[in-house]
Amino acid sequence: MSIQHFRVALIPFFAAFCLPVFAHPETLVKVKDAEDQLGARVGYIELDLNSGKILESFRPEERFPMMSTFKVLLCGAVLSRVDAGQEQLGRRIHYSQNDLVKYSPVTEKHLTDGMTVRELCSAAITMSDNTAANLLLTTIGGPKELTAFLHNMGDHVTRLDRWEPELNEAIPNDERDTTMPAAMATTLRKLLTGELLTLASRQQLIDWMEADKVAGPLLRSALPAGWFIADKSGAGERGSRGIIAALGPDGKPSRIVVIYTTGSQATMDERNRQIAEIGASLIKHW
């Protein structure tokens, strides 16, 4: 068994979910400061990975656009189908120029040979490839089937209604394609530690997140040497930005962190900087 497989195998399969305990108010002060700096709502939650206990939260039950963070949930649904014998990671999917949508850096290079389901999930999570996400959504039956998958695992909040790139529209008070920080954190924890997926599929999902190549300016920029992070970022219209992550010291994950913001006029660089500063405070007061 590899070190990575050993790491995931040791994560307990508890489903406990406790009331908020504000253990590190310094980080919450930074979250509130980020709201002021961005002129926007910021949602934040931090869960203990083992117990599910809420360590910190701010606007945990307010809706925020999911943006590309939904791609982790999508690949979780795909892996669930693989575990059930309904899908194969090695199955090759062919597509055409007409299937390509905005921001598809991986799929646009494989119009001739197509891509396997495994490769599409990797592209969707590590590079946030939008066409890969749409092709994967098609394999499970579309956005409503992803919502149904989430409902079946106990998440009655998170919903996907549209395809890429329309799902990033982020209209105020529009519940389409949204989640809440508390719901997303709990669902991510179930996918990474629960019995919904096999150990091999849980390991595959966290491996894809660990290999994320487009979230460098966010939490990763604040991470000390030797820390572990597996994450997925998202960006949308109307100043929307977000990240979901499993992270921790000593090379293994010990907490789930979810950060969303929407409604800002700030630049992407400024949104990234504020999320990175929240991450720096989190690590400082770990």
Results as ranks from 00 to 15, higher is better:
residue 14 F to C: 07
residue 57 S to V: 13
residue 201 S to F: 15
residue 157 V to G: 10
residue 149 F to A: 07
residue 238 R to P: 10
residue 191 L to H: 03
residue 260 Y to V: 06
residue 222 A to R: 15
residue 239 G to P: 00
residue 184 M to Y: 10
residue 188 L to C: 09
residue 89 L to E: 05
residue 267 T to E: 12
residue 30 K to G: 04
residue 145 E to K: 15
residue 134 N to T: 03
residue 179 T to H: 00
residue 161 D to K: 02
residue 253 P to A: 10
residue 73 L to V: 10
residue 135 L to T: 07
residue 165 P to Q: 06
residue 225 A to F: 10
residue 150 L to V: 07
residue 158 T to F: 06
residue 39 G to R: 14
residue 187 T to L: 12
residue 144 K to M: 14
residue 228 F to I: 08
residue 175 E to D: 14
residue 184 M to A: 05
residue 7 R to D: 07
residue 109 K to F: 15
residue 124 A to T: 08
residue 113 D to Y: 07
residue 100 L to T: 06
residue 212 D to N: 09
residue 213 K to I: 15
residue 64 F to I: 02
residue 228 F to Y: 07
residue 173 N to K: 15
residue 158 T to N: 00
residue 216 G to E: 08
residue 88 Q to Y: 15
residue 162 R to L: 04
residue 250 D to F: 14
residue 19 L to S: 14
residue 114 G to S: 03
residue 182 A to D: 13
residue 217 P to H: 09
residue 204 Q to A: 06
residue 207 D to A: 14
residue 167 L to P: 03
residue 232 K to E: 00
residue 224 P to V: 03
residue 16 A to H: 14
residue 247 L to S: 06
residue 59 R to T: 01
residue 83 D to H: 03
residue 13 F to G: 06
residue 178 T to K: 01
residue 240 S to C: 10
residue 241 R to E: 02
residue 249 P to I: 06
residue 117 V to C: 03
residue 285 H to A: 10
residue 42 V to M: 12
residue 15 A to E: 02
residue 30 K to R: 09
residue 96 S to Y: 12
residue 111 L to P: 07
residue 187 T to H: 05
residue 75 C to S: 07
residue 222 A to H: 13
residue 178 T to C: 07
residue 223 L to T: 11
residue 3 I to L: 14
residue 78 V to C: 05
residue 237 E to D: 13
residue 45 I to S: 08
residue 95 Y to C: 02
residue 283 I to D: 03
residue 202 R to W: 02
residue 161 D to S: 08
residue 282 L to Q: 05
residue 266 A to V: 12
residue 238 R to Q: 13
residue 233 S to E: 00
residue 219 L to T: 03
residue 233 S to C: 02
residue 137 L to E: 02
residue 277 E to K: 11
residue 236 G to A: 10
residue 174 D to Q: 06
residue 110 H to Y: 08
residue 263 G to R: 07
residue 145 E to Q: 15
residue 67 M to I: 07
residue 269 D to G: 12
residue 73 L to H: 06
residue 16 A to T: 09
residue 174 D to Y: 02
residue 240 S to Y: 02
residue 77 A to P: 01
residue 166 E to R: 14
residue 215 A to E: 04
residue 158 T to P: 00
residue 204 Q to L: 12
residue 157 V to D: 15
residue 207 D to N: 07
residue 189 R to L: 11
residue 126 T to P: 01
residue 164 E to K: 12
residue 79 L to I: 04
residue 174 D to R: 02
residue 235 A to C: 02
residue 15 A to T: 15
residue 138 T to P: 06
residue 28 L to Q: 10
residue 240 S to P: 01
residue 249 P to G: 04
residue 234 G to R: 00
residue 172 P to G: 12
residue 84 A to D: 14
residue 133 A to V: 01
residue 265 Q to H: 15
residue 87 E to T: 07
residue 285 H to Q: 09
residue 36 D to S: 11
residue 66 M to C: 06
residue 24 H to V: 12
residue 183 A to E: 12
residue 229 I to S: 02
residue 214 V to E: 03
residue 266 A to Q: 07
residue 15 A to V: 15
residue 72 V to G: 02
residue 244 I to T: 07
residue 177 D to V: 01
residue 10 L to F: 15
residue 170 A to H: 11
residue 64 F to M: 05
residue 112 T to M: 04
residue 66 M to S: 02
residue 251 G to C: 11
residue 109 K to N: 09
residue 98 N to T: 11
residue 210 E to K: 13
residue 225 A to L: 14
residue 178 T to R: 01
residue 254 S to Y: 12
residue 126 T to D: 08
residue 12 P to L: 12
residue 231 D to E: 04
residue 147 T to D: 09
residue 212 D to G: 07
residue 134 N to H: 03
residue 43 G to D: 00
residue 35 E to G: 04
residue 219 L to V: 11
residue 224 P to H: 06
residue 186 T to R: 15
residue 256 I to V: 14
residue 89 L to V: 06
residue 149 F to V: 09
residue 162 R to C: 09
residue 55 L to S: 06
residue 113 D to S: 15
residue 24 H to R: 12
residue 203 Q to L: 10
residue 218 L to P: 03
residue 90 G to E: 14
residue 240 S to I: 00
residue 255 R to V: 05
residue 99 D to R: 09
residue 137 L to A: 05
residue 238 R to N: 14
residue 144 K to E: 13
residue 175 E to M: 10
residue 248 G to E: 01
residue 172 P to L: 13
residue 268 M to E: 06
residue 62 E to D: 13
residue 218 L to Q: 02
residue 10 L to S: 09
residue 153 M to L: 14
residue 263 G to A: 10
residue 34 A to T: 12
residue 259 I to V: 08
residue 125 I to M: 08
residue 163 W to E: 12
residue 94 H to R: 11
residue 175 E to L: 14
residue 82 V to K: 05
residue 64 F to V: 04
residue 206 I to Y: 15
residue 176 R to P: 03
residue 19 L to A: 15
residue 197 L to H: 04
residue 253 P to N: 09
residue 197 L to R: 04
residue 257 V to E: 01
residue 56 E to A: 14
residue 252 K to T: 08
residue 147 T to N: 09
residue 44 Y to T: 01
residue 248 G to W: 01
residue 241 R to T: 05
residue 30 K to E: 07
residue 215 A to Q: 04
residue 145 E to D: 12
residue 63 R to C: 06
residue 221 S to V: 12
residue 96 S to V: 13
residue 219 L to K: 03
residue 167 L to H: 02
residue 30 K to Y: 08
residue 6 F to V: 10
residue 29 V to A: 15
residue 82 V to Q: 05
residue 125 I to D: 00
residue 179 T to P: 00
residue 97 Q to E: 14
residue 186 T to P: 09
residue 227 W to V: 01
residue 174 D to A: 04
residue 97 Q to T: 09
residue 245 A to V: 04
residue 252 K to A: 13
residue 219 L to R: 02
residue 226 G to R: 11
residue 78 V to S: 02
residue 53 K to R: 15
residue 38 L to S: 08
residue 137 L to K: 01
residue 165 P to V: 10
residue 164 E to R: 00
residue 159 R to S: 08
residue 158 T to V: 03
residue 85 G to R: 11
residue 154 G to A: 04
residue 284 K to T: 09
residue 94 H to Q: 13
residue 10 L to I: 14
residue 239 G to H: 03
residue 262 T to G: 06
residue 221 S to M: 10
residue 135 L to Y: 02
residue 125 I to R: 00
residue 97 Q to P: 15
residue 277 E to D: 04
residue 91 R to L: 04
residue 284 K to Q: 12
residue 154 G to T: 03
residue 82 V to Y: 07
residue 57 S to T: 13
residue 93 I to E: 03
residue 87 E to Y: 06
residue 215 A to T: 06
residue 247 L to R: 00
residue 79 L to E: 01
residue 254 S to V: 13
residue 260 Y to C: 03
residue 246 A to D: 02
residue 73 L to M: 10
residue 230 A to G: 14
residue 94 H to A: 09
residue 265 Q to E: 11
residue 149 F to S: 08
residue 183 A to L: 07
residue 55 L to H: 09
residue 213 K to G: 09
residue 94 H to Y: 14
residue 152 N to S: 13
residue 173 N to V: 11
residue 79 L to W: 01
residue 236 G to D: 02
residue 286 W to T: 00
residue 60 P to C: 09
residue 142 G to V: 01
residue 167 L to C: 15
residue 2 S to G: 07
residue 133 A to T: 09
residue 239 G to M: 01
residue 229 I to M: 08
residue 220 R to E: 02
residue 220 R to S: 03
residue 188 L to F: 06
residue 140 I to K: 01
residue 73 L to R: 00
residue 89 L to D: 04
residue 121 C to R: 00
residue 243 I to Y: 07
residue 159 R to L: 04
residue 125 I to G: 00
residue 137 L to Q: 03
residue 182 A to V: 13
residue 85 G to C: 07
residue 213 K to A: 09
residue 83 D to V: 02
residue 10 L to R: 03
residue 241 R to A: 03
residue 96 S to G: 12
residue 227 W to R: 00
residue 160 L to I: 14
residue 220 R to P: 02
residue 136 L to P: 00
residue 38 L to E: 06
residue 91 R to Q: 05
residue 169 E to W: 09
residue 80 S to A: 14
residue 70 F to L: 05
residue 89 L to W: 05
residue 167 L to M: 11
residue 24 H to S: 15
residue 172 P to C: 10
residue 38 L to F: 11
residue 283 I to M: 13
residue 81 R to C: 05
residue 133 A to S: 12
residue 85 G to D: 13
residue 224 P to G: 07
residue 244 I to K: 00
residue 41 R to G: 05
residue 238 R to Y: 14
residue 87 E to W: 04
residue 76 G to V: 03
residue 255 R to A: 03
residue 283 I to V: 03
residue 154 G to E: 10
residue 87 E to R: 01
residue 237 E to R: 09
residue 87 E to P: 01
residue 218 L to Y: 01
residue 251 G to W: 07
residue 176 R to C: 09
residue 50 N to D: 15
residue 99 D to A: 14
residue 170 A to D: 09
residue 125 I to N: 01
residue 211 A to G: 10
residue 168 N to I: 04
residue 92 R to C: 07
residue 246 A to L: 14
residue 158 T to I: 02
residue 184 M to T: 01
residue 253 P to S: 11
residue 158 T to Y: 00
residue 121 C to G: 04
residue 206 I to V: 14
residue 219 L to C: 04
residue 244 I to F: 02
residue 11 I to R: 03
residue 92 R to W: 09
residue 262 T to S: 11
